[in-house]
Computed example of a mutant assay.
Amino acid sequence: MIEVGMTYTAEKTVTPDMTAKAVGSGGLEVFGTPFMMGLMEYAAMQCVQPELPEGKGTVGVEISSSHLAPTPVGMKVSATAEVTGISANGKMITFKVTAHDAEGLIGEGTHTRAIIDNARFLQKCNDKLARV
């Protein structure tokens, strides 16, 4: 059962392919914001996935985040997601997300995920190809 207060933390070591320069979101070889937000989403997904029935998953529908401090290649980063709300119908989950490196907080924000039926979601996605 998904409950408010559940948390999950994911960790990675920043590699050259995770930099702003590598992804094209900036010109410097520092931890890129898209990768920070991706790690935040991953933490949120992992936070609730074990509580979902077989064949169900979550997809990100909204994320709002600040990126407060740079992190160099070679330093470990972590992202923590905490469930802060569940919609009345149980299909939408909101999270507080934070990211840290060895020096402290590097990012924070909010994230929302929708619970989906994996097969139905993929079918809806793939049906787009038939229409174009």
Score class of each variant (00 low, 15 high):
A22T: 04
E62K: 15
L68I: 09
I86T: 05
G74P: 10
G32L: 05
A22V: 05
Y42G: 08
T58K: 04
M75F: 14
Q49D: 12
H67C: 06
A88Y: 09
A81L: 07
T33Y: 05
T84S: 09
L39E: 00
V23E: 04
M40P: 01
M40C: 11
I63V: 13
K56C: 03
G74A: 12
A44V: 02
V73L: 01
G55M: 07
A43W: 02
P70W: 02
G27C: 10
I63L: 14
E82Y: 05
T84R: 06
Q46W: 09
C47Q: 03
E54I: 08
T33S: 15
E51Q: 14
G26W: 01
M36L: 11
V23L: 12
G24C: 13
A69K: 08
E62F: 13
N89L: 12
I86P: 03
A69M: 09
G85V: 06
S87A: 02
V30G: 00
K56N: 12
S65R: 02
V73A: 03
P50K: 11
M40G: 01
Q49V: 13
T80G: 01
S64K: 14
T80P: 01
Q49K: 15
V48M: 06
F31S: 00
C47T: 08
V48N: 00
N89V: 12
M36I: 10
E29T: 12
E62D: 15
F35P: 00
I86E: 06
P53S: 04
S64F: 12
H67Q: 08
S65D: 07
V61A: 13
P34G: 04
T80H: 00
M75V: 15
K76S: 15
M45H: 13
P70T: 07
T80V: 05
V77L: 04
K56D: 04
T80R: 03
A88G: 10
I63T: 09
E41I: 08
S25Y: 06
S87G: 06
L39D: 01
V30T: 10
T84Y: 01
Q46K: 15
M37K: 02
T33G: 14
S65G: 13
E82W: 06
Y42S: 11
M40N: 04
A22W: 03
M75C: 14
T71C: 07
G24L: 11
L28N: 14
G26P: 03
V23R: 02
V48K: 00
E82D: 11
P34W: 02
G27P: 11
V23F: 09
V23S: 10
L68S: 13
L68A: 07
M40L: 08
P34V: 06
A79W: 00
T58V: 09
I63F: 07
E41N: 10
V59E: 09
V59Q: 11
E62L: 14
M37G: 01
G74K: 13
M75W: 12
M75Y: 13
L68Q: 14
E29N: 15
G85L: 03
M37A: 10
T71W: 00
F35H: 02
G24E: 12
G26D: 06
G85R: 11
I63R: 04
C47D: 02
G38S: 14
E54T: 10
M40D: 01
L39I: 07
G85C: 11
Q46V: 13
Y42D: 14
T58S: 12
S64W: 06
E62H: 15
P34F: 02
F35M: 08
Q46M: 14
G24F: 08
A22H: 03
M40F: 07
